[in-house]
Amino acid sequence: MTFYIFAVIAVVFALTLIFKKNPVSSAFSLIVVFLSFAGIYAVLGAHLIAAMQIIVYTGAIMVLFIFVIMLLSADVPDLDYSRTSKTTKITALIGGLTLWGILTWMFKGAELTKTGTHTEEWITQSGGNTQVLSELLFSEYILPFELTSILLLAAIIGAVAIAKRKRGKKT
């Protein structure tokens, strides 16, 4: 029941996100979509993922998004969909339909009743969501975890390098 409430909110605000012509309104709608995702995760019992969803997406990424929108396009005229070229529209339609098809094909054969070793009872017994996830992250999945950190480090160094080069050219 709670799932449907959050799902409806998510879908409605995803639609407003697309159809609103003001970039800031769209960004605020996206925040509501992320929040309802967090709600769905919490309903599923994945409290840590829900908290992380809010901290990372709603709390950090969207603040940056809105910050950039406010700084860059406060005066830019609203988006005009009528100027979109026909090629873009057709490509977008084909892309969307393909994605929909792939997702349907993927989930058609999925067994929803199948449960893995990490059942809800097992997680509660072994100390809750946060502990189980951190233990897995630092034992079984340590290599992907560290590799992701290196990827992020590379992104940070890249950003610093770009910022430095621009300043060097100006002076």
Partner: peptide
């Protein structure tokens, strides 16, 4: 179960009111 992370998550929403 997430304790303090909940505070960080919710507190970060306050900035949207200001924005």
């Amino acid at each position: 179960n997430v304790g303090i992370l909940y505070i960080f998550a919710i507190a970060s929403l306050g900035v949207y009111g200001i924005m």
